[in-house]
Design a binder for these strands. Sequence first.
DNA 1: CACATAAAGGTCAGAAAAGGTCAGAGAACG
DNA 2: CGTTCTCTGACCTTTTCTGACCTTTATGTG
Lengths: 150, 150
Amino acid sequence: MKMSDMIARSIAEMLSDGGGVAELQRKSLATHFSCAPSQINYVIETRFTPENGYLVESQRGGGGYIRIIRLMDDRRRTLVEAARGIGGRLTQNSSAKITQTLVSAGLLSPSEGRLLLSACSDGALAEVLPEERDRLRAGIFRCAILGLAT
Amino acid sequence: MKMSDMIARSIAEMLSDGGGVAELQRKSLATHFSCAPSQINYVIETRFTPENGYLVESQRGGGGYIRIIRLMDDRRRTLVEAARGIGGRLTQNSSAKITQTLVSAGLLSPSEGRLLLSACSDGALAEVLPEERDRLRAGIFRCAILGLAT
DNA sequence: CACATAAAGGTCAGAAAAGGTCAGAGAACG
DNA sequence: CGTTCTCTGACCTTTTCTGACCTTTATGTG
């Protein structure tokens, strides 16, 4: 199998693991595949293009990175799916992570993310007994993103 | 995570805790992060700039300090005021009305409005006893718009 | 008060650590 | 063969971080 295909597969895996977001370091990935760093650019440019539904961000300098985000074509469908994926309980931490993913994927604007996050925070649910919070939070979260999809 | 990001996060935390004002000592913060004092300047210059809505004051000499102030724009200030205006209880109907008002005033986008409305709906709060809902809803609503203002 | 000293913070050049670009050599494929 | 896809290396730009040196302010001292 071609090297670029292997690299692409590896990135695709990271995308699955990361729920649609992969963050990598060019040099270390290149080292891992024993290739030139620019090869990573090549793979990204040929396979993870906007036309294929990906968005790429990067940052140079110390601690730099390349972030690849899979955009899902049908915003609504994906939101509905995400809502379906919420279980019967949801911790504050999980809700923050999911929100972050949705924002990264461009399904929520940063503002919407903040709003959702705050609405699901322990602070907002202070009235409720702690042991009830996670169930309630799941409901709020689900309704909120379903509402957006409407 | 990069050092500068950690420092920035730490300052952001101080800003939240201080209600928009953070006062720090360059050297002790640098010591805390084991970095050069000028690194603190770097972080402030690259992240807490006027374009990003921050104001920085400092004072040299004994007992010197660096003070960072987050400027609120009109939108934020109004949202904070609106949040303050929410009482201890809020019916679904009232929350819908207020949301509508905020959207009309351009303080919330239509999407944000839908999200907020759904998160505060009786559906989302189905888990809670009806007589508790309005108190809870008030909290969620307040937190949500305060979160936007942050 | 005048002065000296210590205790801050400010500036800037440059090293180091990333990622970006592009021309061109090979490889694969028709 | 000619074309298209891979891959590399040389060189560039951006971001981070540090250290040497400078300025400002507070405070003690004769």
